[in-house]
Amino acid sequence: MKGKEYLTRRQAITTGLASMGALLFSRCSTELPPTYGNLLRAGDVLTYASHRALLPKQSLAREYQLADITSFPATGTTNPVDKNNSYSEEYDRLQKKGFKDWRLSIEGQVKNPGIYSLSDLQQFPSRTQITRHTCEEGWTAIGEWTGVPLGTILEQCGIMPNARFVNYYTYDGFDDSIDLMDAFHPQTLIAYGMNGKDLPVPHGAPVRLRVEKQIGYKSAKYLRKIVVTDEFTEMLSPGWAWYTGI
């Protein structure tokens, strides 16, 4: 039957393309986060590779004026003391004392691991930026963030030459990681202020991350610990893309 023959040819083409893709990606596997074992992830890895290869390295996300600040929904975890939603006993204790005992530990592939209190972080030269938060759900909001650039802290700790990823751990369990390109981006902040005040609890108090060139869920709230690694660790649910510059 002729229809059958045609389908076989098309299957041959698809198989050929798929194996070409597999060859391409396996060749790159030492360079790219090796989480992409399935076809769905091939698109994400292609996006990541092409963004890194084609887009200007350190271009800044657009910054806005004070008058542009908009209402801002708090989604995901909005308070880790809520017993029904990502409850953290430790966070509960810290919040009761007004985050006086909160510390951010920086460890892993760094020469000087450190433990920073909120006032330690506030000693560093700060950066304030009004940027657009882009949620994967489809909504956007403009807010002002104040904090210390992650790059400043990483320089202070002195990352090792083999370091490749910055992993961050949070009190609500939305642990994730970024590559050094985003970690050292001047707008990537360890943010402790929002719209001119202390960072409110629904938005990640006392300290959250801002990764302005990726989708909102990379800007983790309720930071706890930062670990610099040379290997990629899958931390976020594998159902969600690791690189979300798109």
Binding site: L40, G43, D44, T47, S71, A74, E136, E137, H203, A241
Partner: peptide, 30 residues
């Protein structure tokens, strides 16, 4: 957020919404 009467606001979301964007977005981009 601010003192002014027309100040932008924040509010926490209290429901779990429909969201299949994990695979939805990845397949969209693929």
């Amino acid at each position: 957020f601010f003192e002014s009467p027309d100040s932008p606001v924040s509010a926490p979301r209290t429901v779990t919404i429909f969201n299949q964007n994990g695979w939805g977005r990845s397949l969209h981009f693929l």
